[in-house]
């Protein structure tokens, strides 16, 4: 069974929900990303999402744009991220998902990306500018390498598209909580819980929610309605602010705090 599927199954058996933290790979350098990833895995993360730096991240808000820029200034690109995944895989069995825009993957080669990702222990890809209509060639390459293609669903998607996305996605469906770009928000949409209930009724696969979720309180509020919660910008803000052991400690504590409400009763 693929690692992502196994994690959701095991958590379900325990009555837990998945915590899926996101950081940009190479922000501020690859050694820090490696240390952060291992710390997060040790402190309660169930699946790790690593961002591949890109020059024009148009689904991202200022926090992740800045992280992408910092990583690019360090010369980090897809190949480095794949190698980093390989190093992590040697030390942990946590599922690894890469979040990257389509053009770097296209230029590296769809088959090459999928094959090398699989060889380095990557479990899935989220490609935010690749809707199902355009995903055919990538899905073929990914399926051949046994890499999950995780689709996003949005508040604008509507029932029909959400059903289709739920059918096509592998691992889980990533529901975008807000009509908008990534970034920590103090308030989430008032109708989010209702939307999650509706999405839940439309798809059979595990359901994760992300975008804008930044506090343990928000995580607690959403936990009953989903199988997993993605937290990104709130962690990346800490990466931007802190350095060294202080950063590792702070992020570790934050992960533990985010995971607590997902452990169930």
């Amino acid at each position: 069974m693929p690692r992502i599927d196994r994690v959701f199954k095991q958590l379900k058996a325990k009555g837990e929900k998945a915590l899926i933290p996101f950081i940009t790979a190479g922000d501020p350098d690859l050694a820090t990303t490696r240390a952060l990833a291992l710390e997060m895995a040790a402190r309660g993360a169930d699946i790790l999402e690593l961002g591949v730096p890109f020059s024009d991240p148009l689904a991202d808000g200022p926090t992740i744009q800045a992280a992408s820029l910092r990583a690019m200034q360090g010369g980090v690109h897809l190949e480095n991220v794949l190698n980093l995944a390989g190093e992590l895989r040697a030390q942990t069995q946590i599922p690894l998902i890469l979040m990257g825009y389509y053009n770097p993957i296209l230029q590296y080669g769809l088959e090459r990306t999928a094959t090398e990702a699989a060889a380095n222990g990557v479990d899935g890809f989220i490609i935010p500018d690749l809707p199902p209509e355009e995903a055919g060639p990538w899905r073929v390459a990914a399926a051949k390498a046994k890499i999950a293609t995780i689709f996003l669903a949005a508040p604008t998607s509507g029932a029909e598209r959400i059903r289709t996305l739920g059918r096509l996605t592998k691992g889980f469906l990533y529901y975008v909580s807000v009509t908008g770009i990534t970034g920590a928000r103090t308030e989430l949409p008032l109708d989010l819980v209702e939307s999650l209930k509706e999405v839940r009724s439309l798809v059979k696969c595990p359901l994760a929610v992300g975008f804008g979720i930044s506090t343990p309180e928000q995580v607690a509020g959403l936990a009953p309605y989903v199988d997993g919660v993605v937290v990104g910008s709130a962690i990346v803000q800490r990466v931007a602010r802190l350095r060294g052991q202080e950063l590792i400690q702070e992020v570790g504590d934050f992960i533990a705090a985010l995971k607590a409400p997902l452990r169930g009763n």
């Binding site: 389509y102 500018d129 690749l130 809707p131 949005a154 604008t156 996305l165």
Partner: peptide
């Protein structure tokens, strides 16, 4: 050509 955009924009 094509439509390489985030899902949020596809319906639009």
């Amino acid at each position: 050509g094509g439509r390489f955009v985030p899902e949020t924009l596809m319906p639009a």
